[in-house]
Design a protein around this nucleic acid. Structure first.
Length: 969
RNA sequence: GCUGGAGUGGCGAAAUGGUAUACGCGCCUGCCUUAGGAGCAGGUGGGGCAACCCGUGGAGGUUCGAGUCCUCUCUCCAGCACCA
């Protein structure tokens, strides 16, 4: 016989009507009797179709909302629409619809659909960002930011989307493409409105520390803000074109200085050239003829023009270094006073730091690549520290310093290298394979020492010094025979073999090594002494020595000091200053689009910007516009707007045509929920004090570096203007996961794997969908969960089993077993909902139902408790049974969350594992309050335990009552 | 490349340092049925007849005891990326 099934299409509308009629979810924000709790969801865009993602966002947080309400909180769970935005405008362009009408109709559809979720939203506080009542205050807040120089109009390189015909904020460019439409963005120099988010970079970063957010959210924001500490150093430019010009000075009459930013000022002595970004002002000025010093102006101009033409993406993809020397000028090194060449190259970004860098090819991979390509000198200034991991220095042993040479002998006849294989068998598999190594005698020349060592160890005498490998090394190891730590300064010399001429080596040397001639590949494969491996790699690559810190060499007075320790002394000596740089750019808020909040600004006949006075707010969006995208805002086509401006401000005054980025609208909506209909203020100060910060904010991970960062900035700016009570807007933040199609792929119409929630709800009911989505995976961490059709069926089966329990309800008093099962479930479900672990909460509910099914009868009280536990997940069914079976007039959703006597949670007898020496050998059923003696006695009566304990009594016992007993024989 | 997160059955996934795989899906066996894509009962990490042994990406370590803590390493996901 098929199991009895409840009729969701009757029950659910019944319950929804009951809740609406009772207005049970309308919050009195001024209620002092209950503790306020503000649960916020990112509000939806009214696209007109409610998809599974909306269900996951809203129906699942609704479970938490219902739980908090039952816990006695005065719960604010508002809803609204982020209603400005491109889709409305695109509907207008493509299908000739009115964006306003389109948006408002969509909202109507979505409100109806959202009701089917059984959500406990407080619709009475709904906000709609495209309504003049709302955007009046967006404009008002813009004005406050402008007054405090946090909104400014400036010329800057900006991202332009050719498809959407508008500028974008940096955050809206993903991998060089428009975040909305996926088209490649271009760079343009335009005058636009910006919010000065960079002024808050440091606070946005440091205030993250105090927030109990997941590390992944914090680190994504940290990365986006991108703080780096370093120094600003100045190089003097000198000019060589003609002698009369060679002392070019800036406007103040000072010698021209070129500032660079570096995080590695300790490598200053390794600078062998400078690089300017193609956008660098000095380059622009030079090409504009302001300083007529370049002797290759046309080549520079050609290069700069060429980089301008490249898109963001092309510049990112092509990592091959390009550039042009600025001929006619040289830079003077601030410490060595050497003249060094200056280049323009697009691997340096105009928008970061000073747009100029000091290049240290020995210690920076990008500079190294460039130096290789342009044949520039490579000068190592930080020695490599090599700690021998097989014989590391031993703490407490004396340190001895030593000068050591390594010698590479190359035979040019067949391009082979001489490598020594140690004979000493005591090394086993780790027998050293290395180049010639030897100590430098007192007063001896390093290179001579190297030649001597080659003669003594190998016998070859007809050799000539080719070069020194420019990488000095500090090798640290422990010399066991002498019980000392060795701290060796190592230099390496390369010799060329002229002929096979040899002298006899002494017997001792012969017994130590076998020397073999190896090809370069064989050397790479067989060499196994760390310092020689590094030298070899350096020699082969031609000079790149990684970016690590170590001992300074070739660094004038600083030679020999630790690079970290000496860093700021070098900056001081060079007259530089410590600075901090951020990757974060100012937030570009202008959009050349129609369906957005008008920027409340007008221009006087001289073109100066003026705020529109408050009495004219809301500054209405004109309706007589041509939507055809033209690269200029459609507002420019409105006659009404022009007339309005002339009418109010006078002839010659012109409107601002751009609208605001919709992220501005959504940066403050959560404050408006507190006073959605107040037309005298943006929110209510008393209520903000009571309700902010938001207790828990749930949203999508895609907004971590957009909405979440913007609204933190916006709120902090408002905090500084004394408009809001706290420095951070959101206390807890949870990023939810994504629901994928049944095939595990992202749902999309083209893949045909889209689940339509309306259909599923019609078939299985909203309660089944809610419970299924809760069960699919943990809600407190983002993940991708495929929608399994079997899963929703299983969940409906579970709810039918819950429904079937009603036939067991009787007037008998609750058994202890029933009480215990309920108490355990209430505790587990409560703590799990609290931390958004709804999957395990549902699991606990299932365990409870399994237990109740096994009972012969269920008490009325017990059933009531069960329904309260079920209520957040299946609100319709729970309320129905509450009314039908328990004959209650009230809604179950106004009842309290069950609480229990602690004693019900403790078990009389528990089964604990018995381990012998940490391995599980058996189990005993025992009271959690049993003594250690009793536990051991019980355990030893187990045959398996006895077998594992041949000596009978344990020598040691670890006993954690109620958990584990571990016996050590 | 840098930063962060994660690797557990056939699958979604559970496990304050204390009996690894709860709960569900799927699968297997049986029952009931004219029938089953329904329902009910039982089983289900791997190896072994068994006692037992092996098992949380891999290698070490700390501990009486490690999925959980530490070191190294591999793989996947996410954020950033020519950011000096």
């Amino acid at each position: 016989m098929a199991r009895e099934s409840y009729n969701h299409s009757e029950i659910e509308p019944w319950a929804q009507k009951k809740w609406d009629d009772g207005k049970i979810y309308e919050v009195d924000l001024t209620d002092q009797s209950k503790e306020p709790y503000y649960l916020l969801n990112e509000f939806p865009y009214p696209s007109g179709d409610l998809h599974v993602g909306h269900w996951y966002a809203f129906a699942i947080t609704d479970i938490f909302a219902r739980f908090k309400r039952m816990q006695g909180k005065n719960l604010l769970f508002p809803i609204g629409f982020d209603a400005f935005g491109l889709p409305a405008e695109n509907a207008a362009i493509k299908r000739g619809l009115d964006p306003k009408k389109w948006t408002y109709e969509n909202m109507d559809v979505m409100r109806t659909q959202m009701r089917t979720m059984g959500g406990s939203f407080d619709w009475s506080k709904e906000v709609v960002t495209c309504s003049p009542e709302y955007y009046k205050w967006t404009q008002w807040l813009f004005s406050r930011l402008y007054e405090h120089e946090l909104a400014e109009r400036k010329e800057a390189p900006v991202k332009w989307c050719p498809h959407d015909q508008t500028v974008l904020a940096n955050e809206q460019v993903v991998d060089g493409k428009c975040e909305r439409c996926g088209h490649e963005v271009e760079e343009r120099i335009l005058t636009q409105w910006f919010f000065s988010i960079t002024k808050y970079a440091d606070r946005l970063l440091t205030d993250l520390e105090g927030l109990p957010w997941k590390e992944e959210i914090k680190s994504a924001q940290r990365e986006w803000i991108g703080k780096s500490e370093g120094a600003k150093l100045a190089f003097t430019l000198s000019f060589k074109k003609n002698p009369s010009d060679n002392d070019w000075r800036d406007e103040d009459g000072k010698p021209a200085q070129l500032a660079v930013f570096t995080t590695r000022p300790d490598t200053l002595f390794g600078v062998t050239y400078l690089v300017l970004a193609p956008e660098h002002p000095w380059v622009t000025a030079a090409l504009d003829g302001e300083h007529d010093v370049l002797t290759n102006e046309s080549a520079v101009r050609a290069y700069v023009e060429e980089t301008k033409k490249k898109t963001e993406l092309e510049r990112m993809e092509n990592k091959e270094k390009t550039g042009v020397a600025l001929e006619g000028i040289m830079a003077i090194h601030p410490l060595t006073k050497e003249e060094i060449p200056v280049y323009v190259a697009d691997y340096v970004l105009g928008s970061y730091g000073t747009g100029a860098v000091m290049a240290v090819p020995a210690h920076d991979e990008r500079d190294f690549e460039f130096a290789k390509k342009f044949d520039l000198p490579i000068k190592p200034v930080v020695s490599m520290t090599v700690i021998n991991e097989h014989n590391p220095p031993v703490e407490g042993k004396p340190n001895t310093k030593r000068n050591v040479i390594h010698a590479i002998l190359r035979n040019p006849a067949d391009d082979t290298y001489l490598v020594g294989f140690l004979k000493d068998e005591s090394w086993g598999d780790r027998k050293p394979v290395n180049f010639v190594i030897g100590g430098v005698d007192q007063g001896e020349d390093w290179a001579e020492a190297a030649a001597r060592e080659i003669r003594e160890e190998t016998g070859y005498t007809d050799i000539v010094l080719e070069q020194e490998v420019g990488l000095p090394i500090n090798a640290y190891f422990y010399q066991a025979q002498k019980e000392v730590n060795r701290d060796s300064d190592v230099r390496t010399f390369v010799f060329t073999l002229k002929s096979d001429e040899k002298e006899e080596t002494d017997a001792e040397e012969k017994s130590k090594h076998d020397f073999k001639w190896l090809t370069a590949d064989e050397v790479t494969a067989q060499l196994n002494v760390p310092s020689d491996q590094i030298i070899w790699r350096f020699y082969q690559s031609g000079g790149f020595a990684t970016g690590e810190h170590g001992r300074l060499v070739n660094s004038g007075d600083f030679t020999g000091r630790d690079s970290n320790e000496a860093m700021w002394d070098i900056v001081a000596a060079a007259g530089g200053e410590r600075t901090i740089n951020f990757r974060l750019r100012d937030w570009l808020v202008s959009r050349q689009r129609y369906w957005g909040c008008p920027i409340p600004v007008v221009y006087d006949p001289e073109g100066n910007a003026h705020l529109i006075p408050s009495e004219h707010l809301p500054w209405l969006l004109p309706e007589d516009v041509d939507f055809t995208p033209s690269g200029v805002s459609p507002l420019a086509t409105s006659e009404e707007l022009k007339d309005r401006v002339t009418g109010i401000f006078g002839e010659g005054w012109t409107p601002e045509y751009d609208t605001l980025d919709t992220f501005v609208d959504s940066s403050w909506y959560f404050m408006r929920y507190l006073a959605p209909n107040d037309d005298t203020q943006f929110s209510n100060a008393d209520l903000m004090k009571k309700w902010l910060p938001v207790n828990r904010y749930s949203g999508g991970s895609e907004h971590t570096t957009m909405h979440l960062l913007y609204s933190r900035f916006f709120y902090k700016a408002m905090y500084d203007l004394a408009l809001v009570p706290t420095a951070e807007p959101f206390y807890e933040r949870f990023n939810r996961g994504l629901i994928m199609g049944p095939d595990g792929q992202k749902m999309s119409k083209s893949k045909g794997n889209v689940i339509n929630p309306d259909e599923v709800v019609a078939k299985f009911g909203a309660d089944a969908v809610r419970t299924y989505l809760s069960f699919i995976g943990p809600y407190n961490e983002p993940g991708n969960y495929p929608w399994k059709p079997e899963g929703i069926e299983a969940m409906r089966r579970f709810l039918d089993r819950c429904y079937a329990l009603r036939t067991k309800v009787s007037d008998t008093p609750a058994t202890e077993e029933e009480q215990k099962a309920l108490a355990k479930a209430a505790l587990k479900i409560g703590t799990d909902i609290e931390r958004f672990k709804l999957n395990t909460a549902v699991s606990a509910l299932m365990i409870l139902v399994n237990a109740l099914e096994d009972a012969a009868e269920i008490s009325k009280d017990g059933f009531g408790t069960f329904l309260r536990l079920l209520a957040p997940f299946a609100p319709h069914l729970a309320d129905h049974l509450y009314s039908e079976i328990l004959k209650s007039e009230d809604s179950i959703h106004t009842q309290d969350w069950p609480t229990f006597d602690e004693r019900l949670l403790s078990e009389d007898m528990v089964i604990i594992g018995v381990q012998v020496a940490g391995k599980r050998r058996g189990e005993v059923s025992i009271s959690p309050s049993a003594s250690e003696e009793e536990a051991v006695l019980a355990a030893l009566s187990d045959a398996n335990v006895q077998k594992a304990m041949p000596n009978g009594q344990p020598s040691r016992v670890i006993y954690i009552p109620g958990k584990i007993l571990n016996l050590i024989p």
